[in-house]
Design a binder for these strands. Sequence first.
DNA 1: CTGTGTGAAAACTTTCACAGCG
DNA 2: CGCTGTGAAAGTTTTCACACAG
Lengths: 213, 213
Amino acid sequence: MAKIPDATITRLVRYLRALERMEEAGAVRTSSEELARATGVTAFQVRKDLAYFGSYGTRGVGYTVPVLRRELRQILGLGRKWRLIIVGMGRLGQALADYPGLAEGYELVAGFDVDPGILGRRVGPVTVRPMEELEATVRDEHVDVALLAVPEGQAQGVAERLVRAGVRGLLNFAPVVLSLPEEVAVENVDFMAGLSRLGFFMLNPRWREEMMG
Amino acid sequence: MAKIPDATITRLVRYLRALERMEEAGAVRTSSEELARATGVTAFQVRKDLAYFGSYGTRGVGYTVPVLRRELRQILGLGRKWRLIIVGMGRLGQALADYPGLAEGYELVAGFDVDPGILGRRVGPVTVRPMEELEATVRDEHVDVALLAVPEGQAQGVAERLVRAGVRGLLNFAPVVLSLPEEVAVENVDFMAGLSRLGFFMLNPRWREEMMG
DNA sequence: CTGTGTGAAAACTTTCACAGCG
DNA sequence: CGCTGTGAAAGTTTTCACACAG
């Protein structure tokens, strides 16, 4: 079985979203061509990406929307409900807790914060708990993944606590490179990096050729 | 001049952050080795990334922290202050407006929302304005970049308005693929995609070999 | 003698053409 | 016949070894 490009996984997420829109719209069949248009990649790419995992289409016909959707959910680990917590219930943490898409495939168990002012407050589906309860919650509630929305300076420390307590995946919103045992899956969501890339591209309009001043 | 990998730009952002920490700590010299350790890449990679843009070090010695920092800021377009707006001042938009790192290299001009309930409210450095004033603000205040923090369904429409009004770069937080003229720079910050990738990696612990079940 | 800068090799990803299945 | 699935080619990125400047 070939090695699967990281970028393929990211695209799979897009295909899935496109399929969900199609299914909502009542579509039953689709094609690599249509998926490509919906997600801004090439039809070659769509077929290759799917082929890494198996044969889900019918030659000469295309793909069956609900079937492919189910398969992609399976591949992306949405077959089961991951159990989540949010650490850091500032405005970012609260925005995350309220995000409707979360309920699809994830079960938000609790939110944590140091600020006594918001302890006990209800946000989205959860109540804010004190940091002291972090380890106990992770263990007792079988938490799989933590969304780390704490300030930069505390990210590494909190991440270590989480991993020690048994969390297996981290979605890190702080602009730091976490150093953790490699069996822990980490994804970074760094909007400042995105902003800097924007600056670079805007400064280098033919962002393929010619740099340097 | 060679084509510069996209990933290089992302790493440049990390190097810059590491350098800023070093400078704060009073360090004057550093090396590709040290930068590598601080950012979790290899020293080869650091040198190669920097070499795309020029020769900033001294052989046998290393790099001068403030010099390299200045150069990277230049490369990443932080030499000038980009003028920003935030469209969508829900909790996410408010969290962004309050983010202290923004002030470094970006000038937040205004925030916009449709909700009459928060119009006029002061968040971070800005006051929330109604969507009707969007175009006028972009033009009159010479806005370069917009942070798009509106609900999924409105992202494409708002993006088009922004581009028509003259915005040149978009940082899109909605999980949609925006289709816009290609001279507009777009970066996506999609935390749900990150979450799905986590699920995939956790489901495939030796996330290099063996898939399929 | 040290650590950068770089050409060349290896690894990886994307593109493509088309065989082949329904 | 049409559209998927795939091997092979093209293109891109990373790794590496080492020449060379200070």
